[in-house]
Design a binder for these strands. Structure first.
Lengths: 251, 251
DNA sequence: CAGTGGTCTAGACCACCAA
DNA sequence: TGGTGGTCTAGACCACTGC
């Protein structure tokens, strides 16, 4: 606001950016839930006292960031991991023989190996913007495709927002885990970043994936963020790549 | 055009999409070279007989696809791998300790291991949309960071567009290889897709990277495309991930 | 200063959907 | 049929660049 403080700040914010921020606030505050429609462009325009075109440009950017989905003739809806056409939006592992070509890895069998409350180690705390020793939820599970264990992943969640999450609730839930986070805990994952390495498994890891300790695996460390770039999940995955590969499109 | 032929085709093309196609054609035809400005929005509007806003929306999409770069007050320029802020746009390997945080892996020493003309094998031909036996150029090189061999890559180029490419010219060129393809051969890479696996190296590969044959490595197979999604390069890379990692942002 | 892209508006019309 | 998002236009004004 005061142009004296930040020299590198563009001392100018377009109207549509301000509108975008306002809509973002309402999304974060849960004024409209995932899957629900947000008010029409005309209604938002009159609410904020700007033209429809300005609201339109704001929503354009939200839609580009997958925060919102437009459907012609129906309205604009809060994006969700549940009913979304692209389920498992953040999972880039696809079968080598992808006949359909749609990157759909097919149905996965999920096995919860472990689920318990613990305290954040230094690196987990750093990734989740907590303090070391804070309460976290720790889950370990295996995903299998066609009976073949393929992904072993361990994930950490901050304890407070996910109070009440148990192994049983995880087991009972059908569909993407991120969809459960939305409907059960009101936490919507919006963005994620992954660091990928090639590693050899520890003996216990090898056993869970039914491979030898000499089998090279993809190590995928993901930090998923909710609104305002707040980190809400750390996930460390080990991917078998003998029948699958990690697919990435570089625009 | 004829709505009878294709049942699933949206028998409707917005004006700005048509304008986008026209601009794309000019880009492909080389009417404006990489780094050069394209005509102003007003000029394009009058050339195509549409309003400035329509041209604007067309250019918006081209800019979103990194085909073109807008610079306020100066004009709109054909994107290039050379002077682009993000050099090595397609290289996602970054140092584990990235102090600057800009993903800049720093200067690389390049060593050409091999460069020769050969004939396309079946899989190379399929990737490059050629026929098996067609002339291809085959290059093998090593990239080192701080004296440490980190990337071993082998790449195949279709023989015809790259007539005259030799090991010497590769060695002499400073800067990104894709920048050379632009200025020397008029081939601009626009999009790429990568398939990533974890593998163990062959003995010769291990020697070139100065690692043991038990060191897990990232296998990165990239197909790079020029305009109209035409494949123009197949690149198979082996990445050491003991001091670097592959970084990916999931929007 | 003139020329460029960037923002904002107001209004018209079209395509899609549901009741 | 009415409401939604999608397209297109025309014009005004702003911000940035270079001369």
């Amino acid at each position: 606001m005061t142009p004296a403080a930040e020299p590198t700040t563009p001392s100018f914010s377009p109207l549509y950016q301000q509108i975008k921020s306002l809509i973002l606030q309402s999304l974060h505050a849960g004024e409209w839930k995932p899957g629900e429609p947000i008010p029409s462009e005309i209604e938002l325009a009159s609410r904020y006292g700007v033209s429809q075109g300005t609201v339109r440009k704001a929503i354009d950017e939200l839609a580009a960031g997958n925060l919102v989905v437009r459907r012609q003739g129906k309205g604009t809806f809060v994006a969700t991991h549940a009913e979304q056409h692209v389920q498992y939006r953040f999972l880039k592992l696809v079968p080598d023989l992808d006949q359909a070509g749609d990157g759909d890895p097919g149905p996965a069998e999920r096995t919860i190996v472990d689920c318990r409350r613990s305290r954040a180690s230094a690196d987990v705390a750093r990734a989740l913007a907590l303090r070391a020793g804070d309460a976290v939820l720790q889950v370990q599970r295996v995903l299998s495709y066609a009976g073949r264990p393929t992904i072993l992943e361990e994930l950490w969640l901050p304890g407070t927002p996910f109070k009440g999450l148990t192994a049983d609730r995880l087991r009972d839930w059908q569909g993407p885990m991120y969809a459960m986070f939305e409907t059960e805990f009101g936490v919507r994952m919006v963005r994620a970043e992954e660091k990928i390495r090639a590693v050899l498994p520890q003996p216990e890891q090898a056993a869970l994936l039914q491979v030898t300790a000499q089998t090279p695996l993809l190590s995928v460390e993901r930090v998923a963020h909710t609104y305002h770039d707040q980190p809400m999940e750390l996930r460390r995955g080990l991917y078998r790549t003998d029948a699958h590969h990690y697919r990435n499109d570089l625009g």
